[in-house]
Structures are given as C-alpha cells and as structure tokens.
Design a protein around this nucleic acid. Structure first.
Length: 562
RNA sequence: UGGGGUGUGGCCAAGCGGUAAGGCGACGGGUUUUGGUCCCGUUAUCCGAGGGUUCGAAUCCUUCCACCCCAGCCA
C-alpha cells in the first residue's frame, strides 16, 4: 500500500498558508528563515511562547531556520539578567536556534553605515529640534505635520553632524537623525521618523562604545535583512510600522528582502500579559518574583509544574489569526492536565490530615501494598506503600452528617482505602472545640488489595498515608492571580488580585516514596491534583510542593449545586 | 473628523460561491480500586446589521455599525 503517513502538522494558519504559497512559487530558494526577536527588558511569558512556537515551529516544519535575536537597541532598559532568562526559558520550551543567536547590537557598525548611506541618498537628516518641538510639529492624527527647519541641510552637513553625534560631541536630546519621508503622511509613522538618538548610557554588550543608538524601526528591518530573514513575523500593533519597514529596505535597495507579517497577540483570561503590568507585579511585591508560580511567565509556569509539551500544545490549539482574542485559561489548564495525566506518577498525599484508626487491625503490623504508578501507562511500573493501624486521611473525606450523594466516609459507611482494604466507620472522637479529631473504623481482612470476592460495590475510594511512615511537607496551593476574567481592562488591575491565590499548607502527610522527590519533579497526588516539587525551596527533609492544577472535581460541582 | 486593521456559538478557530470542521467550556449518560482518565450524546437554520448580485452567499458587491492599533528621542 502507498499510505504514506504524513507527520502530524500544526494546523494551517494564514502565516503557514503564505509560506506554502511562497515556497510553491519558488521564492527564497526554498529556504525559510524566521526569527524570534525579544527585547531583553523582561521575562518571557505565555504570549512570547505563542510567538516562539510560531516562529520555531514554521522553521522546523518547512526545513528552515529560526534565529534568536535580542533586540537590544535601548541600553536604558536592557540587562543581561533578561538575556540569560530569555535564553533559558526559550530553550526549556524547546526552541532550538543552533548557533544562530544574535544581537541587534552586533550590527551597530553596519547599521551606522546604512544610516550614512541614507544621508548620502538625501533620505535622512540631522534634526536640531528638541523632543517637544518634534512632537509639536508632528501634527495630529487628522492634521499633517510641519517640516523641520533643519530638513533641508546638505548631505555634507548631515554627514558631519551625524559623525559628531557618534563622537559624543552633543548632549542627549539635542539632536536626532531622522528619515526624510513625508510630514504630511496619513500614516504618522512615516512623518520623518527618528532613526538615531543620543543616549550616553552603558550598553550590556557594547559597553561605552556607542553614545548613539538606532531606533526599533531602523534596526529591526535591517537586522532582518542582514540575517536574510524571509518572513518577519510580529504582532498586530506593528502593522502601521510595516510601511516604514518597507521604506527603509527599499530605499537602501535590498532585493530580495524580508517581508513583515502580523498576527494577533495572545490574551488570556484571569491574567495580565503586558510587560508593564508584569514588571509592576514583581517590583511592587504582589508576587515573589518573575518566577512566582502564579505568574504567566515561562519561568513561573515552569516552577508551577507546567510541562513544556503542554505549553506547546496550547500554543498550537489556540491558532494564529488576525482578530483580537482572549483565550480562556481553562484551555491552558486542559492542556496541562492532559499532559500530566499521561506522564506523571501517582502518589498519595494527605493535605489536610485527619487521623483514622483501624480498631481491629493488629497494633504493630505493617503491610506493604504495591501500587500502580500510572494507570495510563503500564510501563510506569509500581511502587510500595506501607500500611498500618493508624492512618492519615483527608478531612474532606469524612462527614458526621453526610449530605446526599456523598459517598466517602461517615458513621456506618464503608469505603475503600485505595489499594488496601475496605473499612467501615465505627465512630469518631471530637476535641474540646467540637472538631472531629479521630475517626474510628474496622477493616475487612477479606478485601486486601481493595476488592472483595463477593463483588460488593463500594462507591467511595479515598487515599491514605500510614501515620508512622508519613513524611512531612509544605504544600502551596495556587489559584488564579486574578479573580476576574479580564483584569487588564480595569483601571487598577491590582485591586483585583485574588487574595486566595496562594494558600500554604504546612503539615501535609505524604507517602514515604515522595521523600526522594527531586526539585521540579511532577506528580499526581491522587484525587487532588498535579503537584511539582518546588525548584527553589524543596530539599530532602524539607519538602515543598506546588500545586500545578487541580483534578477536575465533579463532587465539588454537585455539592455547590446543593 | 486621518490612516491601518478586525467582526463565524460562552471562549478560540476552520471555511476562500454549493448549502456552518475541530478544540475548550457547559449539560446529560456509560465505564471506572482516583467523584480523575476514558467513552457516547446534546450545545449556531446561522456567520456584526441592512440592501444587492446569483439557481445558490459566511464566502462577491454595497451601505452602515461596533471594536482594536497609530501622534516615544520605547519595542
């Protein structure tokens, strides 16, 4: 048979459609080159992940190349800490740029040369106006701007001035290099945009070699051209800049040249993704840092326990289009659960412990039960868990007065202790405050392993940990950082921070196997959710787990409905 | 009031003149030693609105409406 199995492809979005059409038309010599161009002034977040998956995904699927290029043209805002975190996060996500890691600052000398060329062509001039004057003369959205009085300088004079700008002869803000285009353009971007400004700042890579720095619109298109990028993919807010992108490259005579395509950026419910707001959350201490597990940053999600595969799957499922969108964070959680369900080992952990005493179980007896690590994956094998007379169970799994449809433990009720025995509640003790302190039960020795020959149906199965063998841990329960759908649209988004977004549980009881958990390791705590050993704070003897996501909880839904 | 864009179910999103894919969510049901997973079913007579062309339109034309982006020496 000729059934050639096609490799599963990412869905065909409009960008891929353009690329396929270009390839079919024989453009680019058949080689697609894209780039992911972050500015190193913040940490990568889920929105960047969308761009990374798009750019690197396209390169991978069409046998092309995707460069990592730092857009570092503004020394005032950029730091090495950010370039390091960006590389780490992008790599963790699965981006592979090989040796193609570049910096716009690598091109400063070439960029300067292109600026000189523009001046020689009579297409750029040094403007002595102040920033305020330039703003005033730019006009408005409906009124044209006015030409600068310096617009008519000779190429000779411009060349001299520009060279002296570079030499550091002028103060910051005293002069800029501008493109000479059209002060009456309906597109404000085209009203003689600034190409270079003077900034006597230390650059994280070039040090003090430069005191003039190119603007984004000048540096970006040229960096693309220098790297022979074929498809320069960016977000919608740069749409108006495309005309300038084309102008610079065409004026300088690049042919063939890269083309810019814009797609809609990602918005997610219950979170903010603007760099400004994320920086604010960090700097004002609303969260513990860029990698706080509640942050939508790559490092935050990693620490929370999100697998990179899940994030990639999410980026593929949300699609790539040009319409404004706000994706329901439930889809992200779905992707995380789906991945974790298939690949994380099951463990038993009691988060809010309540003592269960099996009155008819021998005092000093200890049994070991062999439990499956993952019912979804036979190859995951098994582990042993000790069982004894005194156990910890979840407080939620016992009710003095069980509501309808509650099929966990309650006086007189029989439940299954997962993988162990059936037990029947015989009573309970309360403390001085009237709180249940101990639940008593008897077990049926004929139900070893958690099933009975008589085929008796047990509706409830609960998890447990042997009290004598339990290891202690701190567990951090995370919830959405914001309590509302679209915090970014609020005047003050910070007042909508969910006060219950973090609950720290100190006295959790885990099955002993978990004592060996490595930082970052992911588990499913049965019946509760997915948890990851904290990469910063989890140590042998001082275990700390972060809740990645809860399991879907049908009972909570039923109970809520009443 | 200028220019550039976008409008398909609660949220994403296919569709490109032949009579509305898919995913998430929600709601029912089945299986189940996780109230998890898995499985099955339901969820747009309609594509921002009106008019037109056509045997036939979400797809073409036209008018209108709504929303987003642009007036940094930020990216």
């Amino acid at each position: 048979m000729t059934d050639v199995i096609q490799k599963p492809e990412a869905p065909l979005n409009f960008i891929r459609a353009i690329i396929e059409a270009d390839l079919k038309a024989g453009k680019h010599g058949g080689k697609i080159v894209t780039r992911f161009p972050p500015e190193p002034n913040g940490y990568l977040h889920i929105g960047h992940a969308k761009s990374i998956c798009l750019n690197f995904g396209v390169a991978r699927d069409y046998n092309g190349q995707c460069n990592l290029r730092f857009d570092d043209t503004n020394p005032a805002k950029e730091e090495v800490e950010y370039v390091e975190s960006i590389e780490e996060d992008a790599r963790w996500l699965g981006a592979d740029w090989g040796r193609n890691r570049f910096f716009a600052s690598d091109y400063f000398e070439q960029l300067y040369g292109f600026a000189v060329r523009l001046i020689e062509l009579g297409k750029a001039y040094v403007d002595d106006q102040s920033a305020e004057q330039i703003r005033e003369n730019r006009g408005t959205l409906t009124a044209p701007g006015k030409d600068s009085p310096w617009r008519g300088r000779s190429a000779q004079e411009n060349l001299d001035l520009f060279q002296r700008m570079r030499a550091g002869e002028f103060e910051e803000g005293s002069r800029v290099l501008r493109a000479k285009i059209d002060m009456a353009s309906a597109n404000v971007v085209m009203r003689d945009p600034t190409l270079y400004r003077i900034k006597k700042a230390h650059h994280h890579r070039t040090g003090d070699a430069w005191c003039i720095y190119p603007m984004y619109d000048f540096a970006h298109c040229l960096s693309d051209a220098i790297e022979k990028i074929t498809h320069s993919i960016c977000t919608l807010e740069f749409e108006n800049n495309r005309e300038l992108y084309d102008w610079v490259l065409d004026t300088l005579g690049f042919d063939p040249r890269p083309r810019q395509y814009e797609f809609a950026r990602l918005n997610l419910t219950r979170t903010v993704l603007s760099k400004r707001k994320l920086i604010q959350l960090v700097s004002e201490g609303c969260v513990s840092g860029w990698d706080d597990p509640r942050m939508p940053t790559i490092s935050g999600m990693r620490r929370r326990g999100y697998p990179p595969e899940a994030i990639r799957d999410f980026c593929e499922r949300i699609g790539v289009a040009r319409s404004e969108n706000t994706v329901d964070v439930a889809l992200l959680e779905h992707c995380v659960r789906e991945e974790l369900n298939r690949h994380s080992a099951r463990r038993m952990a009691v988060l809010k412990p309540l003592q269960l005493v099996i009155e008819n179980y021998p005092e000093d007896q200890v049994e070991e039960f062999e439990l499956q690590n993952n019912p979804e994956d036979e190859r995951a094998g098994t582990r042993k868990a000790p069982f004894s007379k005194v156990l910890w169970i979840e407080r939620d799994d016992f009710r003095q007065d069980p509501p309808p449809k509650y099929f966990r433990l309650a006086p007189g009720r029989e439940v299954r202790l997962r993988g162990a025995y059936y037990v029947t509640c015989t009573g309970f003790d309360t403390d001085a405050a009237g709180e249940v302190s101990v639940v008593r039960c008897s077990y049926d020795p004929a139900t070893k392993g958690g099933w009975s020959q008589d085929g008796r149906k047990i509706k409830g199965t609960i998890h447990w940990v042997s009290a004598a063998h339990a290891v202690k841990a701190e567990v951090r329960l995370y919830d959405f950082l914001f309590g509302i759908e679209n915090p970014g649209a609020e005047k003050d988004f910070k007042v909508h921070i969910n006060p219950d977004s973090l609950e720290v549980l100190a006295g959790c009881k885990l099955e002993p196997e978990l004592a060996r958990a490595k930082p970052g390791e992911r588990f499913q705590f049965e019946r509760l959710g997915y948890f990851a050993a904290d990469s910063r704070d989890c140590r042998p003897g001082a275990l700390v787990f972060n809740r990645t996501a809860t399991l879907r909880d049908t009972w909570a839904k039923i109970e809520k409905k009443g």
